[in-house]
Design a protein around this nucleic acid. Structure first.
Lengths: 226, 226
DNA sequence: CTTCGGATATTGGTCGGACCATAGTGTACA
DNA sequence: TGTACACTATGGTCCGACCAATATCCGAAG
């Protein structure tokens, strides 16, 4: 029963080195062969880790030269804090903090800008979610898209993009406490509440309802474990 | 003679298959060994391509089972609004709407989470901005980074990333009304106000000060023309 | 002494093959 | 009929070799 794949472990170890300050942006990494030996893994696994880190913009390989830690964007002025920018893993709680700061404002705007078309789409989605709950399907499909539809109701593609990325990232770390039957019913209720405030163009109500909804989820996620 | 690396070619070919509709979200890919043979590459290179695509959320591998195309956004439910996501052009006012919704919340969090180190950096930046105003330099360097520093004070890299992207995008369309001497003085004053609220850990004050600041800028940009 | 050019070493990129670990499938037995 | 086992397919890991681009060093030319 081996859970973590080797290359994932390597990714983590390299990120750790960055956060602990043992490696700095611009540094040149040891050659792959030495790194592999150092980490006690095959060069193949090490390379897959490098590919992953490269794809997320942390590393940069130059054939015949070496592998470097990417320089963060921005100027020297930001240097003291700059490492936060590119590398540094994003924790789960940071995502929740992010959503709780952003989405209530989106809901507020949605209440202001929504059209009847958006309302209809939301209503349709709620129906679907209700059927999911009754059938006890745990795919969470409707739940996932509710927040996207709210963002669309603002009429501003920037919000849609933002929420979409957040949802996608959050889906990676989906945990079980989000899948209990009780939680799904609570979620449905909260969504209905948010829907009605937006339908009634109640901006304050929408903002508060959304914040309450997200805080409930947060509490569930962080108190449920261990 | 910079030949594209093999695994990059493979990444592109797979992305092409997705966009051309020959592969759909949820589909199961052929086994790695067959795919490698099909693409005429080694399994190692194919796997590095898969790692990269996996890191960007396109693919998903399950040991003993297969590799699947992840299904984040593209459901039929969103189809009516989907154009917004991909290629609707983002208007300038949408950026302002975005910032006015987001940054006051960031300022609020900053007032809560800031350390003395952040405060010091902010103070230093304000000094620099003051010298700019006095010297009548119009580079707007300090002005640009003020909002970034605020985001850093939240301690959450997600906000930093967000603000950085927004600033970068806005810098492209920088217009002249932002460069007048009067505006720069007003901006400096507003920044000082925001600074003092954050220094005093006044969350409501910070939120309001930031909102007022942004609304002033918005007014300037949109009333100045014609 | 400086500069240029080529030989050499270093390093990432690609390859093929072997074996391991796990999830899904089918089959034989109770 | 149902359960447990063996088998198979598939992703994960390792090894060792060679290729290709780049850096470095060193000697010859100016």
């Amino acid at each position: 029963m081996q859970q973590a794949k080797i290359y994932e472990q390597v990714v983590d170890r390299i990120r750790d080195l960055l956060e602990s300050g043992e490696l700095h942006p611009g540094d040149k990494l040891p050659p792959e062969r030495k790194l592999a030996e150092l980490f006690k893994v095959s060069r193949s696994s090490l390379r897959e880790a490098i590919r992953a880190l490269q794809e997320s913009g942390v590393l940069e390989s130059r054939r015949g030269d070496g592998t470097y830690i990417s320089l963060p964007v921005g100027s020297d002025l930001l240097a003291p804090f700059a490492e936060v920018l590119t590398q540094q893993r994003v924790r789960l709680w940071q995502f929740f903090q992010f959503r709780i700061a952003i989405e209530p404002q989106i809901a507020r705007l949605a209440a202001q800008e929504r059209t009847d078309g958006h309302l209809e789409a939301l209503h349709h989605l709620l129906d679907m979610q209700e059927r999911e709950v009754i059938a006890d399907e745990k795919n969470g499909f409707a739940d996932l898209h509710f927040h996207q539809l709210i963002a669309m109701a603002t009429g501003n593609p920037l919000f849609v993009d933002l929420v979409t990325r957040a949802e996608a990232k959050l889906a990676e770390t989906r945990n079980e406490s989000l899948q209990s039957e009780e939680r799904m019913q609570r979620s449905l209720l909260a969504h209905k509440e948010i829907y009605s405030t937006i339908a009634g163009r109640d901006q304050d109500g929408a903002e508060n309802a959304m914040r309450t909804h997200l805080q409930q989820i947060e509490k569930l996620v962080f108190c449920d474990r261990e």
